[in-house]
Simulated scan of single mutants.
Amino acid sequence: MAFENDGDLAAHLADQAGKILLQVRASGVFGGKSLGKAGDQTANQFLVHALREQRPEDGLLSEEEKDNAERLAKERVWIVDPVDGTREYGEERADWAVHVGMAVGGKPALGAVALPGLDAVMRSDQPGTIPPAPDVLRMVVSRTRPAREATEVAQRIGAELVGMGSAGAKAMAVLRGEVDIYLHSGGQYEWDSCAPVAVALGWGLHCSRIDGSPLIYNQQDVYMPDLLICRKEHAERVLTEVAALG
């Protein structure tokens, strides 16, 4: 089956990879770290083979695949994370995700994020309506390692902290109206944020580095130190408070 539309392909692959991961977990033959490893490898094989079949001319970057410098010469590069939030996946929580994104000319141009635990797929090309923000803003942070900048900015703006697992789950929580600001400064990689950022941009949110500069993908060094995803009306205030931290 050929997918002519990139958005349909991204959403289908994210959804199917999520279903595969649920089947691997339900098999009952893996536990602990071995479950996360089996899930990662199985979903990765599905995604990379599918993308090479459907889009053989495009570049590809996956967390679970050895990097290939050939992608740097490509205008279109798929950036995937087969299991974003391996710990949460293994613990049978809902706050993990599957990321299928695409960078075009270094920009996060298209993405789909599956939340298999919630039976949901969020797409950059099919934006929905984000619920209005409450009077007291909510800032989502790592449930195990909250970043200092996030906790300090939350205190400065009077925001409530909400702990959550994977990067994709945090970003999609802003779209779902469960939180209002996702500020991260603990370091990530391109596959952690490409698809979620593409979806958030498609839904009209602000996405940037925490100094306000753009997020750029398909770089030789795939490390990304920080990011901010929030409603546009909150961006200036958050960026100002980050800068004030020095």
Rank of each mutant, 00 (worst) to 15 (best):
S142Q: 03
A43C: 12
F30M: 08
D221K: 12
A38P: 05
P82Q: 14
A38D: 12
S34T: 13
E65Y: 11
G128L: 07
P82N: 14
R71T: 11
N5I: 11
D40C: 13
S208R: 08
A150W: 01
V179C: 10
A150L: 05
L215E: 02
L35C: 10
F30Y: 15
P132G: 07
E190M: 10
A147D: 11
G246N: 15
L9K: 03
R145A: 12
G39H: 06
L51D: 01
P56H: 05
A109N: 02
Q188I: 11
D119A: 14
L175E: 05
E88I: 02
M139E: 01
E241C: 09
G31H: 14
S185G: 15
A159T: 05
I79P: 00
L137K: 12
E88M: 05
L22T: 09
A120W: 09
A133N: 00
E91M: 15
T240E: 15
D119Q: 13
C194A: 12
D15F: 08
L35M: 13
M139C: 04
R76Y: 10
S27D: 13
F3Y: 15
P108L: 07
I216F: 04
D180C: 04
D211C: 08
E57Q: 15
A244G: 10
V24H: 03
L21F: 08
P196G: 10
G105V: 06
G28C: 10
A244W: 15
K33D: 15
G168W: 06
H49P: 00
L183M: 07
D226V: 04
H12E: 14
L22W: 00
D15Y: 09
E70L: 13
G85C: 12
R148N: 01
Q220F: 06
G36P: 02
D95L: 02
R209D: 02
V77E: 03
L115A: 00
A50D: 09
I157K: 09
A69Y: 05
L245R: 13
A50G: 00
H99K: 02
P116T: 04
V238D: 00
G36W: 05
S62Q: 07
T151G: 01
S62A: 15
A94N: 01
S213Y: 06
R71V: 06
K232S: 13
V153H: 04
A97D: 01
R156E: 13
A73N: 11
A2N: 08
R55E: 05
R138I: 10
E4N: 07
A11T: 04
G168C: 08
L21D: 01
D211N: 14
V77R: 02
Y189L: 09
A109P: 01
G39C: 09
S124K: 07
V199I: 09
A43R: 04
G39S: 11
Q155G: 09
L35G: 04
P108G: 08
A97S: 15
G246P: 03
A112M: 07
S124L: 13
C207R: 03
L47F: 10
Y217G: 00
N68Q: 11
S142R: 03
E149D: 13
Q126Y: 06
L215D: 01
S62I: 07
W203L: 11
H184Q: 07
E92S: 13
D226E: 14
F30V: 07
A154I: 06
P108K: 03
L22F: 02
D192W: 05
Q16G: 00
L110S: 05
A11W: 00
N5V: 12
K232V: 12
K74L: 07
A38V: 12
R148W: 13
P134A: 12
V199Q: 04
V113F: 05
E75C: 03
